[in-house]
Design a protein around this nucleic acid. Structure first.
Lengths: 252, 252
DNA sequence: ACAAAAGTATATGTTGAACAAATAGCGAAT
DNA sequence: ATTCGCTATTTGTTCAACATATACTTTTGT
């Protein structure tokens, strides 16, 4: 009786359902999702609500509506992977496509060392608090990575740690771009469950980044972030050789 | 009679109207936009259509709907400035806020040299075609920058040039991120109308970037892109000293 | 006089039905 | 065999009514 009292479970979100189905690959690019009236029936909801939710998927480039024909899933390249909602879905429902995950990681390899370097120059005390709190969380949830809930918590702290560094650049573009990290971090935590890479070592690398930022040592922060990412790439089974930026320069 | 034959002007897009009004500053963060029924009346359109358009503004974080009260414009920091539609509105209706423009330019100063460098490593012949075509357009529309239409065309070519370089990285994240360029490039063209900075010099700097990419000289591409951005920052009256990344390294 | 509670006004949220418009596929006529 | 036109299906638009949430006002009790 507690369950039914709390809340009428919001409302069955069609966007959520379809996102899950699409990201899990049950509907692939070129496929058509069920028509409006079927979705109405399936979720006992009216057409306006269905259309409102479908609009969201259209706005982020995931589906394309063809008047009088149906709603088609668009190519992966068309998806707005910079949209926070999209990255959230990606991290929650796994990669729709390993290729995108690889490209996101390549991007991270490109930029995160530079972001860490900038953070080391500009981080305020408040930024350090956020970074440290996330790091504490990482340490807390390190050992008991038994149940799924614990791993999710660890994953969230990992995301918070990297996001806090992006925000420490004090640039709104970098700050908003930090959402792109989420999918690969969640994937990492999911996979490292099997891959059993050394978590102690990973934690130590994160600590190095944090300390370098605190001590205002940009170059060390750059290198430390590179080390973290090398570990990430390794755990995900992707060679960091794909990195493009940050090469061709001799670090002092 | 030609005007009415062509097309029933699509449909008055409420999203478009409100975006113009909000980006122009007629509604500022904290303000409430007209209520649904007023918009219905003003545009002779039904409520469903109005609500559909308002949903788009909600999805990109520009407005927030408060049940039973109204639709409030959110703080600039909440706006999804990485969304292509948002950047398009920003470029079309000028900056809602000079601060955001400054931060976008700071971001460009951070990344574009590295993007050019990567493009120099990975650009295919097809990428070079796109870059060259945009460059040709830049040269064409250089002299006759008289009417507004001509300037718009020049601006589009400028955008196309930089976007082509981002795409030449062959990374989907960089490619989608290229939308962020649009606002500052349009602003530049608008302002340089008054500022009368030397267009010949700017063109030459763009040529240097293109040539460096063609010749597969990453380091030269990096420096050439920096030079282009220095010119841009100068024309916009922003000192490039705000740049964060790409500093602290000695270029070979 | 002040404060808490109840009630009212206003705007958004939800529902349902009916009609309009666009697209694909089929079939007939040239 | 090709083109034209018809029909079926699905999305797009419109309208009207009711439900719900929030802010403001009035009332009531101390």
């Amino acid at each position: 009786m507690t369950s039914s009292l709390r809340k009428p479970p919001a409302r069955a979100s069609i966007a959520e359902y379809l996102a899950e189905a699409i990201f899990a690959g049950r509907y692939q690019p070129g496929d058509f999702v069920p028509r409006e009236l079927d979705l109405c029936e399936r979720f006992a909801i009216n057409r306006s609500a269905v259309r409102s939710d479908l609009r969201q998927l259209v706005d982020v480039g995931i589906i394309e509506r063809i008047s009088g024909h149906g709603s088609k899933v668009r190519e992966y390249a068309e998806w707005h992977i910079l949209d926070p909602q999209v990255t959230e879905w990606m991290s929650r429902y796994a990669a729709p496509n390993p290729e995108i995950q690889r490209e996101i990681l390549a991007f991270r390899l490109d930029v995160e060392p530079y972001v860490a370097m900038t953070a080391a120059r500009r981080a305020t005390a408040r930024d350090l608090v956020a970074i440290e709190e996330a790091f504490e969380g990482l340490g807390q949830n390190l050992r008991n990575a038994s149940c799924a809930e614990e791993r999710r918590l660890h994953s969230e702290c990992d995301v918070a740690f990297h996001v806090a560094i992006f925000k420490a650049t004090h640039n709104i573009v970098w700050a908003q771009l930090s959402h792109i990290l989420r999918p690969s971090i969640h994937l990492l935590v999911t996979m490292s469950n099997e891959n059993a890479s050394d978590p102690e070592e990973s934690l130590e690398r994160h600590r190095q980044v944090m300390e370098s930022i605190r001590m205002r040592r940009p170059k060390e922060a750059f290198l430390a972030a590179q080390a973290v990412l090398a570990g990430t790439a390794d755990a995900l089974g992707l060679e960091p050789g794909a990195s493009s930026l940050g090469r061709g320069f001799e670090l002092p």
